[in-house]
Nucleic acid binder design. Structure first.
Lengths: 348, 348
DNA sequence: CTGTTAGCGCTTTCAC
DNA sequence: GTGAAAGCGCTAACAG
């Protein structure tokens, strides 16, 4: 690393394109061409410039490029929170895919505040980022569409509500995943299968509910509202909801929890009532978060390809940014059912 | 939201400072002053400008500001991976603290590739971000110091090696945390306390080892190399290392795992050998990741204030960026010992 | 208090 | 193939 000249504030003066141009004996336009991999430069000139660039450790100033070229190389990601594994898995996939294209994520946790999210979005989109990934956005369809009409490029990951056709989105195959989970329980002989759902009205909840009901129907079973309780996708909620489910008169022999958090909560509720899993109660989750395989017993669950959802969203966004049109604006990624130790054949 | 004019490419033309200035009947300098909250504007002018800004939905173009003012409002965060809870917790704290100052994180997962990290850093620092947070960086002391000499502003979170005095860093009080954990086991009557350490040479490992040995020494116990095995901070590693520890001739009655992953691995190893926890074996972890309270039995562990470490790093960085000098360049955040169900008095 | 002006570093026509 | 030059939108002196 060579020592840079220092500005009068003691901070180093960074190498600029001009300096490279002078050193290489060419114009800045040529340097720009080389740096951006344009074809119309002679091999000789190119190599010469590249050498100087390497020697001086030049890298383009992204602000300048952003201002001049109108693209920043940044993609905004609005996400309710970064910490929960659910979100960080998506983030992880997106970051990976983006860095392959030398683009970078600008992270915007919204903390579930709608207003903040909207204004974030507006600020993100204006000369700050080239586009955005909106994870579980709280915007209404109208707001999203208005954004679209303003020329904003974005794709939604895991929409909260049914989205307008025109809004690009990627999500998991919630309905078929849930269906598969319940069929598994049915195949094990369970007939009384309770459910702990997510918040009513959320798309993921309703789709999973659809799969659950459909599977029951296929076995000729009517859903019993008494053993279908709504919760909030949190562990605490699962403990509470699981408790309610286990305290009904005719107790279910199996519980389909609409996510892993709820499942682990239900496990705790069962345990505190002296029920053994899976001997006395089978439990299936949804997500397959990392720890699902490390709880005891290991959780049978529906794996959502979270990182892959992030990656897929990036790929849609990239095409959007390149002004490529494409057919499927709504992408549903297949889930995978994973059998572990928390389910077993219903006892006689 | 008002409809913006459309450029010839169909994409909307964004509102610029010039447009606001014209509409408000002032100069762009005045608009800039208002937008940046400078004091030297009359109340009347200010309100007028603010009204127009609001009406037109104007937001500054960050690229332009970055280029002109030399600050971007972005802080780079290099981090080995975003997904593991350990990292996302830190990230979460940093993002929170940063967004309070209307700054944003540019996320740079390094995937443990040193070269990539270095070049990332160089690019980050050049007109892209105002500074950086380096989580568990693989740079050598020399590289870090060279960066410092180049005027780069950054703070290290959880250094891998002992850092030069001049490099700002924040970490947890590893030594005292470990000490407390082992004292707890000693107080429960354990005398034969094994350890699963992290990779040898890592600062966190060595500091925790120091605390472990010191606690043993205070009870007049010599560390026994036979029951101190190194591992990699992963669950799989914990299973393997735990197994080795439990297969030695004179088995330990307690294990201090240097992080929660290792602890949960050790639990599995114990369980697969028919040992009950905590009846036959006490286990203590380090970190207190979210699931530590949800495994069975719930894990006794040393809580690292991860989010707080992120927040503290931001606060150091902010002062750095404001050219404020400060005393303590190395900050150690206190840990908290949390007793749960995985430890109990040694059985007679 | 407010306006004028000179760039920040780069990309991109448009000539040559 | 290469260079000259015109900005991109904004901030920060510097005048007034």
């Amino acid at each position: 690393m060579s020592e840079p000249a220092n500005g009068n504030d003691g901070r180093p003066t960074r190498v600029t394109i001009r300096e490279i141009a002078e050193l290489a004996g060419v114009s800045i336009a040529t340097v720009s061409r080389v740096v951006n991999g344009r074809g119309d430069v002679s091999a000789e000139t190119r190599e010469n410039v590249q050498r100087v660039v390497r020697e001086r450790g030049y890298t383009v100033n992204r602000s300048a490029r952003g201002l001049s070229a109108g693209r920043t190389g940044f993609v905004g990601v609005t996400i309710p929170k970064v910490h929960p594994v659910y979100f960080s898995s998506i983030l992880s996939g997106a970051a990976e895919a983006l860095s392959e294209q030398d683009m970078r994520i600008v992270l915007c946790p919204t903390e579930h505040e709608h207003d903040r999210e909207v204004s974030l979005l507006e600020r993100l989109m204006h000369g700050t980022t080239d586009g955005a990934l909106l994870v579980l956005p709280e915007e209404t369809n109208d707001e999203l569409e208005s954004l679209l009409n303003h020329g904003y490029r974005f794709v939604v990951i895991d929409p909260l509500k049914q989205l307008n056709e025109r809004v690009p989105a990627v999500s998991a195959a919630n309905s078929s995943g849930a269906n598969q989970a319940v069929r598994h329980l049915l195949a094990l002989g369970h007939r009384r299968i309770g459910a702990i759902t997510g918040p009513n009205g959320w798309l993921a909840t309703e789709e999973r509910r659809g799969g659950y009901h459909a599977a029951l129907a296929s076995a000729g079973i009517m859903p019993d509202p008494a053993i279908e309780v709504a919760s909030d996708f949190q562990i605490e909620g699962g403990i509470e909801a699981g408790g309610r489910l286990l305290d009904v008169a005719e107790r279910p022999t199996a519980i389909f929890a609409f996510n892993d958090n709820l499942a682990i909560g239900a496990m705790q509720a069962a345990r505190s009532r002296g029920l053994r899993i899976p001997e006395d109660l089978s439990i299936v989750g949804f997500d397959d978060l990392e720890w699902a395989q490390h709880v005891t017993p290991a959780l049978t669950t529906v794996r959502q390809p979270l990182a892959e959802m992030g990656r897929m969203a990036v790929s849609l966004l990239t095409r959007l940014l390149d002004n490529q049109s494409f057919e499927a604006l709504h992408v549903e990624l297949a889930t995978r059912f994973i059998v572990r130790g928390s389910t077993q054949r219903v006892s006689a």
